[in-house]
């Protein structure tokens, strides 16, 4: 018998799942606690980077540790926006069309990535947005404790 040619393809669908419980560390853990307990957004003033939000425990520029906590506003300016037309199941945080944004919060020198769900047609670089917080009791200590951002005014 010769090697197989034009065999009817055989395939199997499979969902691979990895349950990971990730340690946050000192800085990310306290930043997330600030979202959950205080409804406040904290950054770190890091040499060479300015006020970094969301913060790391080290400088991404020179890898030095350190920095001090600085509270920034939960309102800021969009620096980038992309509107997802058809969200992908088990990946995107919304079933309906939504936008990803980078937001430079007032008082921060870097931009925070998040989502906007309403008035998508009005979103543009330079537009002002404000955080919408998940209600008390529903904040779990993740970046999604900010439910989304919405346009100001």
């Amino acid at each position: 018998m010769k090697a197989p040619t034009s065999v009817e393809p055989m395939s199997q669908r499979m969902t691979v799942q990895f349950p990971y419980k990730r340690s946050t560390g000192e800085v990310t853990g306290r930043f997330l606690a600030g979202l959950k307990e205080q409804k406040k957004i904290w950054g770190r003033r890091i040499a060479g980077q300015g006020v970094v939000v969301p913060p790391n425990s080290y400088s991404e520029v020179d890898a030095k540790s350190g920095g001090e906590w600085v509270e920034v506003k939960d309102e800021g300016t969009i620096t980038a926006v992309g509107i997802v037309a058809k969200p992908v199941a088990d990946l995107h945080p919304s079933d309906a069309s939504f936008a990803y944004v980078l937001v430079k919060l007032d008082g921060a020198d870097t931009s925070l990535a998040h989502i906007v769900k309403d008035r998508l047609g009005e979103l543009k670089v330079g537009a002002r947005v404000k955080a919408v917080w998940a209600p008390d009791g529903e904040r779990k200590g993740t970046i999604r404790d900010i439910a989304c951002f919405q346009l100001v005014g």
Binding site: P54, V84, V88, L91, Y100, T142
Partner: peptide
């Protein structure tokens, strides 16, 4: 913590 958990993909 900050990006993958928002569901960001390479097209976005």
């Amino acid at each position: 913590f900050y990006h993958a958990s928002l569901g960001l993909d390479h097209v976005s």
